[in-house]
Design a protein around this nucleic acid. Structure first.
Lengths: 154, 154
DNA sequence: TATCATGTAACTTCATATGTTACATGATGG
DNA sequence: CCATCATGTAACATATGAAGTTACATGATA
């Protein structure tokens, strides 16, 4: 099963934008996300429609965050990228006449829906700011680790 | 996103097998599942490898359950059909060098794994027998409903 | 031995995220 | 005003994998 990576990709891009402090072009984001500028625009367009980011044309243009990252949850971003399918399984058909199918569908649908609700709840509990801070912690740790190596080599 | 319907389809087929009491051919199962006999054999082959069903060739042959449906959970069946992808989303790439990517992947992976665990736990709590009984309840209710209509029409 | 059924390889089909090319639109700086 | 830079978007190509299909081999039964 091909897995949709739009949420993953756009989060990557947003963290870059937070770190930049100035408009970031699709070209730069594409390089960071190892993809194509058009793909970036395509997915970012959804975020813009939801008022999460802004885009500016021309010199010095590019993408900027439109809202406080502390007020944006991963669930907001998930919806903004088009609310991709969460559960990769589905029903063979939706024939309401077959009682066997009804029993099977109900049993699976209940689980599917529960899983989707939990997924969205979890995403809703994480803000973009929290993710950015997590990244900064990793960065600090990484730098510390590098310095330790330098000192150890003296 | 195309959703994998093997689990749904095979459950449908298994309920038919339970109701039949004698070997059911791929042809019959295919008709019930609105698909092709080869597709049925393909997916049933996984169940056979796990010892959940048996197949017999020749006259009077077909598919039969190999174990007590009360001892088979939907999780067993899920695994037997090849453990299809549960979460339809994934990471854009697995570049361990990029700290941004690490932060994003960890945040999403945690949620993905939690969701998958819950999914399997739920499937593991439902036996094939329970599903069959649920179907029988629906059938009885349906029959009752039909009779009521006949009586009301008198 | 004819028939029935599974076993399996080797296709085709289909949906859809992703990648790419091409060109239009609009903003900035000279 | 015009060259440049950037987004906006349509149109098409590519890739993946489930599902569907065809063809034929294998084996069991009557």
């Amino acid at each position: 099963m091909i897995r949709d990576s739009r949420l993953s990709g756009v989060l990557h891009g947003l963290l870059h934008m937070i770190g930049a402090g100035e408009p970031v072009t699709s070209e730069q984001l594409a390089q960071a996300m190892a993809t194509n500028p058009v793909v970036v625009r395509r997915v970012m367009a959804g975020l813009r429609e939801q008022g999460l980011v802004r885009s500016e044309k021309g010199h010095g243009g590019g993408w900027t965050l439109a809202r406080d990252p502390a007020d944006i949850t991963l669930a907001d971003i998930y919806r903004a990228v088009g609310a991709p399918t969460i559960v990769a399984m589905g029903h063979r058909s939706e024939n309401p006449g077959c009682l066997v199918e009804q029993a099977v569908n109900d049993a699976l649908s209940g689980t599917f829906r529960e899983v989707e609700a939990i997924f969205l709840k979890r995403l809703g509990a994480v803000t973009l700011d929290a993710l950015a801070k997590d990244f900064k912690r990793r960065l600090a740790k990484h730098k510390q680790s590098l310095e330790d190596q330098i000192h150890a080599a003296k």
